[in-house]
Design a protein around this nucleic acid. Structure first.
Length: 447
DNA sequence: AGCACA
């Protein structure tokens, strides 16, 4: 005890110990693999894997010090490094003399998982996202979330240990897919152990806990927002509070999506006040502001999962932003405040709409040249929104070969056919058809 | 690629 605390954290050469410290292990290295690795040198009496911040370290404890020394000596002079599944692992004596209690209650398999969500924005992960993630392995009965010193944690209850185990094995150490997370949310990694619980007690459906086996469970008052609106669906959907500002991310962006394209698409549902585009995680995202929540809800419902272009290109993923009023500093090709008439455009050169910057842009698709025509659409709006001329011909024939072979062809492409009361003829004829080849960066990237 | 956990 005292001897440990008086030691430095580590040194480059450790005094011998029957415990070896291993690093650079493949993730999810198993106890069996550690035993296999150590067995030739002696009796492995204990192991611990998934150690360290990256869970790529481990300990092996031999019955005898000489066995540990044998293993270290062997690999010190061996031409072949120690390997686990082909990956070189580095060995040294541990600064501890024994592995403490490898088998804790957290290692006893059960039907309830204790999930720690790691990451700066871990607490922004909604219970719905967790539900979605874990539902891939079987019916999720209940989820509770809470904050502990360990961070943001959740208990996830499955029917049985087998289902829980498969989820644990598949997800432990993994990060929640980006597209499931709200805007600006950094990576969120799941650390999973078994909980000693077998049946969670969920009193209410709330932003903190859900019982998916009982849809009639009362909704907690805290799950109802100031407008009396339910922010928690009884089916476990939609915890995300509605907003008049939408966050759209664009997937499979074979064609450049410009501010004007977005404006046209989103104007089909009501006046668009502001748009701000930005790069996020190697993709393009945009915030689209409507004057009211209702319009945003309609637009989101209609557009979510649809594609701006035929063939699965520029697929939209839409969520509610936490913003309510965007701050547009300047009008340019990435951001625009449509509520301010004659707001100076950075690029002073007027364009067809009188506000479209036409130069200074990156390589963008030419949308049928001059046929990108303004169409008066929203009389209530301070200024007309753009629309595609009805006569834009579909341009499939000019698509490069790779596009035809793109396996991703969702059944229903785009077309907000249901823009209640807001439908414009220019929209009905189909969403903007890219009229020319995609820009050079399009090719070779998507293969 | 550098030491866990209750």
């Amino acid at each position: 005890m005292a001897s440990v605390s008086s030691q430095p954290q580590f040194r480059y050469t450790q005094p011998p110990s029957k415990v070896l410290h291993l690093r650079n292990l493949p993730w999810e290295c198993t106890e069996e693999e550690l035993i296999e690795l150590g067995k030739p040198f002696g009796k492995v009496v204990n192991t611990k894997c998934n150690v360290g911040a990256n869970r790529n370290q481990a300990f092996i404890e031999f019955a005898d010090l000489n066995q540990a020394i044998a293993m270290i000596s062997y690999y010190a002079s061996s031409s072949e490094p120690a390997q686990v599944r082909g990956k070189t692992v580095y060995l040294q004596y541990s600064n501890r003399q024994e592995i403490v209690n490898n088998k804790t209650t957290a290692d006893v398999a059960g039907n309830v998982l204790l999930v720690t969500i790691e990451g700066e924005d871990a607490r922004l992960v909604s219970i719905d996202v967790l539900h979605l993630v874990f539902s891939a392995f079987g019916f999720v009965h209940k989820i509770t979330t809470f904050e502990k010193t360990a961070g943001f944690q959740a208990l996830v209850q499955f029917s049985d240990t087998e289902t829980a185990s498969s989820a644990k094995n598949a997800l432990d150490g993994r990060s929640i897919p980006r597209y499931l997370l709200p805007e600006h949310v950094g990576p969120c990694t799941l650390r999973i152990t078994y909980s000693a619980h077998t049946d969670l007690s969920v009193k209410f459906q709330s932003h903190r806990s859900r019982d998916y086996t009982n849809p009639y469970l009362p909704v907690a008052p805290s799950a109802i927002d100031g407008n009396g609106q339910l922010t928690v669906g009884l089916d476990g959907k939609k915890l995300e509070p509605e907003s008049n500002v939408l966050l759209a991310s664009i997937e499979n962006m074979q064609y450049a999506v410009t501010l004007d394209v977005l404006h046209m698409v989103f104007s089909a549902f009501g006046p668009v006040q502001k748009i701000a585009m930005f790069d996020k995680n190697g993709g393009v995202q945009a915030l689209i502001q409507y004057p009211d929540v209702q319009t945003a809800v309609v637009a989101k419902e209609a557009l979510e999962g649809h594609c701006i272009y035929d063939g699965g290109f520029c697929k939209l993923h839409i969520s509610y932003s936490r913003h309510t009023d965007l701050s547009i500093k300047v009008n340019n090709d990435r951001s625009r405040d449509y509520t301010i008439p004659n707001n100076p455009v950075v690029n002073s050169q007027p364009s067809i709409l009188g506000q479209q910057p036409v130069s200074g842009m990156g390589p963008t698709v030419q949308y049928n040249g001059a046929t990108f025509t303004p169409t008066p659409e929203q009389p209530a709006m301070p200024q007309p929104s753009a629309g595609w001329g009805p006569g834009v011909p579909p341009m499939h024939q000019s698509m490069p070969m790779q596009m035809h072979s793109n396996p991703y062809m969702p059944p229903g492409t785009m077309l907000p056919q249901v823009a209640p009361g807001m439908m414009q003829s220019s929209i009905q004829s189909g969403m903007p058809q890219p009229s020319m080849l995609p820009p050079p960066y399009g090719s070779g990237q998507m293969r």
